[in-house]
């Protein structure tokens, strides 16, 4: 166990060293969600909520959840690049704890997500977003966001290990957008055709967005359907389900890499 912790921390440290060596791509990942809020708020805020200012309390928590989805790309790119270039095989030829490489990736990506949440929160405050929930609720909200990230992380690890090449990552980068839009991140599903609204309500991203809106004390979606009324439960169930499915699949894919 101590070797697992030791090796994972060293490998997470490798990613931190990458950020120091190449700060620009790292900063772009941090600031991209902020750009999305500014863009969506400016473009659609008036149409959706009457004014950009009135849209902010709804959209900021949504984009906090969306930021976790963007993290999927970061994870997948890192995993696929290492696997393609043979760096993963170098690690696999060393006497490391078998879980260390993937655990190190988790630690580094969660750290990146904490930084991205901090950047988005600061930008939200600058735009006038405030929470009215108590400190416990606010902490729980950030906890739920990171839990979603953890679930998506293992999805990203698995997809990254199974990807035939970096081209596959580009496909995921495109798919992130429909998944992001078909949710309650930007809009209330009550405004959508009913079948589309149902899809959006069952989206794991929506569960987390709805749950954190409630915990932050921000305006939420109209509700009435089962998933919309059980956002808190689903925001725990979805990520745990993702971890339960993709962590074991990732462990197998790691052991059988390139065969």
């Amino acid at each position: 166990m101590s070797s697992l912790v030791h090796d994972s921390l060293l490998l997470a440290g490798r990613t931190f060293a990458h950020w120091r060596a190449q700060p620009v791509p790292f900063l772009v990942t941090l600031l991209f969600p902020v750009l999305v809020v500014l863009m969506m708020g400016g473009l659609f805020g008036g149409a959706v909520a009457g004014s950009a200012g009135d849209y902010v309390p709804f959209v900021v928590p949504g984009v906090l959840a969306l930021t976790m989805l963007f993290g999927l790309e970061t994870t997948m790119i890192a995993i696929t690049t290492d696997a393609q270039r043979g760096v993963t095989d170098r690690f696999r030829s060393l006497p490391l704890h078998s879980g260390a490489v993937l655990a190190g990736r988790c630690l580094a990506d969660l750290a990146a997500s904490v930084a991205a949440l901090a950047a988005m929160t600061a930008a939200g405050f600058a735009l006038g977003w405030r929470w009215s929930g108590g400190p416990g609720d606010v902490l729980a909200a950030y906890g739920l966001l990171l839990l979603l990230r953890l679930g998506l992380l293992w999805l990203g690890v698995w997809a990254g290990l199974r990807a035939p090449g970096l081209e596959a990552v580009a496909a995921v980068q495109i798919m992130v957008w429909p998944v992001g839009f078909l949710s309650t991140v930007f809009l209330d599903p009550a405004t959508m055709p009913s079948w589309l609204g149902a899809v959006a309500e069952w989206n794991p991203l929506s569960a987390t967005a709805d749950a954190v809106r409630e915990l932050f004390g921000n305006p939420g979606v109209t509700g009435g359907s089962w998933p919309a009324d059980h956002g808190q439960e689903l925001s725990v169930i979805w990520p745990i389900l993702m971890v339960a499915v993709f962590a074991p699949l990732s462990a197998v894919a790691y052991r059988r890499l390139n065969r």
Binding site: R14, A17, H18, A21, Q22, R85, G86, V87, D89, R90, S93
Partner: peptide
């Protein structure tokens, strides 16, 4: 089969 890290 065993590459080193290109960024570091």
């Amino acid at each position: 089969n065993a590459a080193v890290d290109e960024v570091l």
